[in-house]
Amino acid sequence: MARTLIRVPATATRGEVIEIRTLIQHPMETGYRPDAAGRLLVRDIITRFTCHFDNRLVFEAMLHSAIAANPYLTFTLRAEASGVLAFAWDGDHDFRHVETRALTVT
């Protein structure tokens, strides 16, 4: 199972723009790299990252082979109400990893 590091501010005030930072363990094998025998290693990358806030899509990113191993991604969100943030990473070979974090808005 992939390990992740997700940084969401513990609390935010209404209307505050928060930064969300995510890091996930993944080799991001490019598909352009030869193995010792000179054969290309099969591509194995995360192709899509999404963040939903209470089931509403608030951020989406399409990733390519040019994203470094263990993809790191930060983005922003205006905190309007408390709710649940759901993060999903989808990729080659049916890779899927989902995490949730509570966002508390005061």
């Binding site: 390990r3 590091l5 940084r7 890091l23 996930i24 363990q25 790191y72």
Partner: peptide, 13 residues
């Protein structure tokens, strides 16, 4: 930066 250091994934593991 502990939230960005990819080595921290191994520490967590």
């Amino acid at each position: 930066d502990d939230a960005g250091n990819p080595g921290m994934l191994s520490v967590l593991e």
